[in-house]
Amino acid sequence: MYIDFDKIPQNARIWVYQANRQLTDNEAITIGDYLKPAVNQWAAHGATLLASAKVLHNRFVIIALDQNMNAASGCSIDASTHWFKELGETLNIDFFDRSQAYFDGDEIKTFSVFQSKKAVESGLLLPETIIFNNNTLEKFSDLSNGWQIKAIEAPTLKRFFVKTFA
């Protein structure tokens, strides 16, 4: 059963899908229009799931599940993954992008996680650059507590700043 994103409890489980490029406003609307009925009918072994979906920053799609009602199962998680495969094929977008996203002014850019050291050494990332720390977040509250952090605070990046700015 679909509920408004702002009614999701802070302890809800979330999944973050990162697009491999910036979404247009029309694509974001299309994604929302696709996901609302899909989430509305989402179930785990026949049990209704109380959930929501939202596009953030025209780059990320968040699925949030209130597990106080019912928890997801492997099959229901597979179903949600299928949504993003289908959307990706339709819109020519990879929602399983694992690059490092960061703010460059008002724009979200990415680089390969295998190029983290180079991104710091070249000045692409500064200690105060805001990055999207971890797309494997588990709780809704993590979106406002630790998803967007300064690059120097990221466990995967801080060691490179020590060497570069020492």
Rank of each mutant, 00 (worst) to 15 (best):
M1D: 07
M1T: 08
M1Y: 05
D4A: 09
D6V: 02
P9N: 07
P9C: 11
P9F: 10
I14H: 02
W15G: 05
V16Q: 03
Y17W: 11
Y17L: 13
N20H: 12
R21N: 00
L23I: 01
T24V: 05
D25F: 04
N26L: 15
A28V: 00
A28E: 03
I29A: 09
I29F: 10
T30R: 14
G32C: 04
Y34N: 04
A38M: 12
N40G: 12
W42D: 08
G46V: 07
A47G: 06
V55S: 00
L56S: 03
N58I: 00
N58C: 08
N58Y: 14
F60Q: 03
F60K: 03
I62F: 06
I63D: 00
A64K: 03
A64W: 06
A72F: 11
S73G: 07
G74Q: 03
D78G: 12
D78K: 05
S80V: 15
T81K: 14
W83R: 02
F84M: 03
F84K: 01
K85F: 14
L87T: 02
L87V: 06
E89S: 14
E89I: 12
L91T: 03
N92K: 15
D94P: 09
D97R: 06
D97T: 04
A101Q: 11
A101M: 09
D106K: 15
E107S: 10
K109W: 10
T110W: 08
K117I: 04
L124D: 07
L125G: 01
L125N: 02
L126E: 15
E128I: 07
I130D: 06
F132E: 03
F132P: 00
N134C: 06
T136Q: 12
S141R: 14
S141Y: 13
S144A: 15
G146Y: 10
K150H: 07
A154Q: 15
L157A: 05
